[in-house]
């Protein structure tokens, strides 16, 4: 139920994002989802890829600072109020959300929300208890 996210430290210099993507492409890795959080001087690139182990290895070899974090991916119906619906059980269960980002599934019928939370097991329980589909690792990598 937990998905591995690969995070990369990037200085705000032109070309660095390209170099990360190029490095992954050369290793035959597909990026499933990508989000960037940034400050004035640097950013953190968050990636869901089809092969996290290889991604970490090739990026480390290229001297990027990399870390791995467990996140959860939830299918949310792609309609107004979809996101609010999924946040309610987490709020009720007192789960702190550090950040989240969304991407749309191929079929376009549902969106996938990636959550980084402090209490990951409690969050999974709460979401499943409210009837949401918490995606399995291999399904996310296969999207």
């Amino acid at each position: 139920m937990k998905v591995r996210q690969v995070s990369v430290f990037l200085e705000n210099k032109s070309g660095r994002l390209y170099e990360v993507c190029k490095c992954l492409a050369d290793a035959g890795i597909n990026i499933r989802a990508l989000a960037i959080a940034e400050t004035a001087d640097y950013g953190v690139l968050r990636l869901i890829v089809n092969d996290p182990d290889t991604a970490v290895r090739v990026l480390t070899q290229e001297n990027f600072t990399v870390s791995e974090t467990e996140v959860i991916a939830v299918e949310v119906p792609d309609r107004p109020g979809g996101l609010a619906g999924v946040l309610a059980p987490l709020y009720d269960a007192n789960v702190n959300i550090e950040y989240l980002y969304c991407f749309v599934e191929k079929s376009g019928e549902s969106a996938i929300v990636v959550f980084r939370v402090e209490q990951i097991d409690r969050a999974i329980q709460a979401l499943q208890g409210s009837g949401f589909t918490v995606m399995r690792e291999e399904d996310v990598y296969r999207i």
Binding site: S7, T39, Y42, T60, T65, V66, S67, T69
Partner: peptide, 15 residues
């Protein structure tokens, strides 16, 4: 330089 030991995916930890 940010070493893997001090790196975090959360901006607030880096700050």
């Amino acid at each position: 330089e940010v070493s893997p030991q001090v790196f975090s995916d959360e901006i607030k930890r880096l700050e």
